[in-house]
Simulated assay, not measured.
Amino acid sequence: MRALICGVSGQDGAYLAKLLLAKGYDVWGTSRDAQVASFANLERLGIRSKVNVISMAVNDFRSVLTTLSRSDPDELYFLAGQSSVGLSFEQPAETLESILMGTLNLLEAIRFRDKPVKFYHASSSECFGDVGKQAADEGTPFQPRSPYAVGKASAHWLVSNYREAYGLFACNGILFNHESPLRPARFVTRKIIAAACRIAQGDKEKLRLGRLDIVRDWGWSPEYVEAMWLILQQSVAEDFIIATGEAHSLEDFVSAAFDSVGLDWHDHVISERSLFRPTDIAWSQGNPAKAFSCLGWKSKVRMHELVSLMIKAESLN
């Protein structure tokens, strides 16, 4: 089996590459410029030399078509595109183009080549917006509240449309928040973990965050990429929510991080209104019942263990 991972240098892409290599896949991965990209996450996981890297611009159909012809994948995972909700408010055009046009070009390239390829699109829990204190399932309506969420929701429906209109094996994995030590420092979970470790080592800084009352469903990235793979092993293409089913506030996450290093977070953290987003989701929680029923998938690592794993990894850096 051969897999092409668009976005192989990111958190999920690197863990997915490691998983597929362990299963005996021939793994290909894309970057906008593979000749100069560092692929630091692949290096960190010790698999850089085992992944065939190739340059591809997702917003350029010719580039996409050429990449598919060269790699000739059985499975295609689209994990690329601008992935920061906060940054999407500052770069809305880039965010929508990378997500929406990337999805469209890949689907069109698959259709154009007329060769069976199983396609996985990384949809997002952000598509649901605010649904109250309800756990969203696959039938929950979308109410996107950021440029990132608008792009992901539009791409989600493109995948569904191509599946129905052209019979493509195209699936959406609606992943809720999932973290790991490979998260870039700009993401709030890694920002919290890194600051807690620095402060525990004597740094006098104050950790400045936005809202602490937001609630999220946090899982462990290495488990979530296994769900991606399982989605493409089904006989029928469907969409699945991937989540823990548990909800915790950001304050809970902060408290767990500082507790792990023997500190009281109240002494080191400041919530600043200037860091609040124009719109933010108050409560985000998923119902993974379908994934358990159809895929046999269930998360094992929950928020407190996730924090401990990230603290341990950060301490070794």
Rank of each mutant, 00 (worst) to 15 (best):
residue 46 G to R: 07
residue 30 T to L: 10
residue 13 G to P: 02
residue 221 S to L: 04
residue 223 E to W: 01
residue 33 D to N: 15
residue 34 A to Y: 11
residue 218 W to C: 04
residue 316 L to E: 13
residue 99 I to P: 03
residue 248 H to G: 02
residue 309 L to V: 08
residue 115 K to F: 08
residue 11 Q to R: 05
residue 97 E to D: 12
residue 264 D to T: 09
residue 191 K to N: 04
residue 76 L to D: 08
residue 145 R to G: 14
residue 310 M to F: 13
residue 28 W to D: 04
residue 179 E to I: 15
residue 214 I to H: 08
residue 261 V to T: 01
residue 227 A to Q: 12
residue 169 F to R: 01
residue 292 F to N: 09
residue 47 I to L: 06
residue 93 A to M: 08
residue 161 N to V: 11
residue 315 S to H: 03
residue 237 A to Y: 02
residue 253 F to Y: 15
residue 133 K to H: 14
residue 204 K to Q: 10
residue 124 S to N: 05
residue 125 S to I: 02
residue 7 G to I: 02
residue 182 L to F: 15
residue 171 C to V: 00
residue 199 I to Q: 03
residue 250 L to E: 04
residue 215 V to P: 03
residue 31 S to E: 12
residue 120 Y to G: 11
residue 304 H to P: 01
residue 249 S to D: 09
residue 305 E to W: 07
residue 9 S to N: 05
residue 25 Y to S: 07
residue 163 R to A: 07
residue 214 I to K: 15
residue 107 L to C: 13
residue 221 S to Y: 05
residue 89 F to I: 11
residue 255 S to E: 14
residue 186 R to L: 07
residue 93 A to G: 05
residue 226 E to C: 05
residue 148 Y to C: 05
residue 238 E to G: 00
residue 238 E to T: 00
residue 62 R to E: 14
residue 303 M to L: 11
residue 50 K to R: 14
residue 232 L to M: 11
residue 85 V to W: 13
residue 82 Q to N: 08
residue 81 G to F: 00
residue 263 L to W: 12
residue 312 K to N: 13
residue 260 S to F: 06
residue 151 G to K: 01
residue 20 L to E: 01
residue 266 H to D: 07
residue 317 N to H: 10
residue 308 S to V: 07
residue 170 A to I: 03
residue 43 E to R: 12
residue 148 Y to G: 06
residue 171 C to T: 07
residue 170 A to G: 02
residue 41 N to F: 01
residue 250 L to D: 06
residue 222 P to T: 03
